[in-house]
Design a binder for these strands. Structure first.
Lengths: 342, 342
DNA sequence: CTGAAAGCGCTTACAG
DNA sequence: CTGAAAGCGCTTACAG
């Protein structure tokens, strides 16, 4: 009932604890007869090894920590599928940590990174606010870290990452609107500190500049990556002196908020205003109208991030290069974009 | 750079490792002078205790495992807020495990429950398929377990749970439709094995029976708790000989799929068909039309589940009663329900 | 207040 | 193939 230890199994089987351990870890090193005795004893006692003792002794846990901003974010559905598949293939378990459920302080992040009992860490999205902590954790524990989705800031430049080319993808989104004849294009971005947002904004600005289109006053607003934030931002956009005819949202979550606010304002999408998103979460195809957006290959990102961290764990944190792995994004055309009225 | 151990700190400070340990764990038991020396040494070496060794030695990890079906499920946003808040207050860290990202086998679930290095487990939603494994894990490791959201099956009856009264809540949803004059009411339910679905179906059937309304052939269909599943189910509902004028969906995710399928079929909600959901996820208020639904107090569920598991951890798994804690649900009226046409 | 020592449950060279 | 023994990094009675 209460935890059995290896000692009890050994006694019951009439062998040493070393032999019990061998039966479990290297069954081929043990006589069939001994193995049978031990297996019997294990079955009788219901023994299963104390994982903490094993981890302690071995100096590794076979655990990978995956840090995501929020558990309720649909973007991570597919990503975690990739993560789980790869982890299973490589023989690791995954534990998930969440930073934003009550917006972690830097200190908490630091503690989490240093103290957690994992062999390596995959940081997914929105890590930039914690750059310093990550860096110090990395140097203190020499812990393998891989970043997913987001670009790595200059001070973390040696961290390997797996992501889409956010600048190019945002350009593609903006160019799609331009191609449809839009000239007044606004953007709803995330928090200022987020590199992800910065990259997507850069892509937007580049596309506009290259098309010779000016960016009007108040056309770039912040939506905090949330629905309510985006609704507020959309209202601001509509109240501009010269409101945009198309809006690029830095993620689908905000696009959903944007669509809803436009509808509440009596505007029809795409006839009155076109909207384009980013991510292609599963809700993007059931919005009204279905959302045109940029798809990130989330599952692939998850999978590659795990393979990359495993490599670092197994071959040492300084193995190989630290070049970002860029995975392809894709424009998904649905019905939220059309030519402007004018 | 690489991990410092307590021994190095002790040497540098010129004290024993016991003293270093005391400085960290019981600073009041140590002279100020000694403490200063040790603190210095800690700062110089960048020492932080090996958490695994601590856990091993102490026989506890201060970690709570929270098991959720899917990381990308928005229902868990608020729930995790409650979980984190409570865990922090009680001095525990939380690790999240996900069962459905690649639909875990019973064996994997079993391993996860037994081997994971946590002091207790909170199982949130959709646990019923793994009843046997949970039971055996519980008895093998005598591990404290608390269930959230879902009812506990008879064989797990002694597990404490925190949840809404799913039967009553589903009745409320159905009665709301009945009150609006609907007589032909269909239901989209989850998998057959899920107790959560069974309870919600019971509530629906009870309400229909009490109102003297028959349930037509093909009015109860399965939507697998997913958007595509619900779209398929909705089509089946529309193809009935005598299609319903109102649909109760066992969660909002399916309600979103249902709304979209109705729209694709050229029907207007609520004028042609009324729809009501369950959960009140954050997307419920931005559907078209905004979704009338039953709200679960997710944050409160998360919070109470943690307090309950902490009590079991600290006072032994058999402490107190195992009565389910029922938290109140609430009907949220938006715009997806109106009187039927006829 | 501080140190020496035992011991948590394993794994793994090292002998035999 | 098997066992005795060391040791992973801590914490905590137990002396002093």
């Amino acid at each position: 009932m209460t935890d059995t230890s290896i000692k009890e199994v050994a006694e019951l089987a009439g062998v040493s604890i070393a032999t019990v351990s061998r039966c479990i870890n290297y069954p081929e090193k043990v006589t069939e007869r001994t193995r049978a005795k031990v297996q019997d004893a294990i079955a009788q006692t219901g023994y299963s090894p104390n994982t903490i003792a094993q981890s302690f002794r071995r100096g590794r846990t076979n655990l990978i920590m995956v840090v995501i901003p929020s558990v309720g974010d649909p973007f991570f559905s597919a990503l975690m599928r990739g993560v789980k598949r790869a982890a299973q293939a490589k023989g690791y378990s995954v534990v998930i940590e969440e930073t934003q459920s009550n917006t972690m302080t830097a200190d908490e992040v630091s503690r989490m990174l240093v103290s957690n009992q994992t062999d390596g860490i995959v940081l997914l999205g929105a890590i930039s606010p914690y750059g310093t902590e990550i860096l110090s954790a990395k140097s203190r524990r020499n812990l393998p870290i891989v970043v997913g989705c987001e670009k790595v800031s200059p001070d973390l430049a040696d961290l390997p990452s797996v992501r889409v080319d956010n600048v190019a993808a945002a350009s593609d989104a903006t160019n799609f609107l331009i191609k449809h004849g839009h000239k007044r294009i606004g953007m709803i971005r995330g928090q200022g500190s987020s590199l992800l947002t910065k990259d997507r904004e850069t892509g937007y600005r580049t596309a506009m500049r290259e098309a010779g289109l000016p960016i009007g006053f108040g056309w770039v607003v912040e939506g905090r990556m949330t629905i309510p934030g985006a609704r507020h931002a959309t209202r601001d956009l509509l109240n501009c002196a010269d409101p945009p005819t198309a809006i690029f949202c830095a993620n689908d979550e905000m696009a959903i908020g944007c669509l809803h606010e436009l509808r509440d304002s009596g505007l029809v999408v795409p006839d009155d205003v076109s909207v384009i998103g980013f991510d292609d979460i599963r809700y993007a195809e059931v919005t009204v109208p279905p959302l045109t957006t940029i798809r990130q290959p989330a599952e692939e990102i998850g999978e590659r991030a795990i393979y990359r961290i495993c490599r670092r764990i197994e071959e040492g944190p300084d193995v190989g290069n630290s070049e970002p792995q860029i995975v392809p994004h894709k424009l998904i055309v649905r019905q939220s974009v059309t030519a402007p009225r004018e």
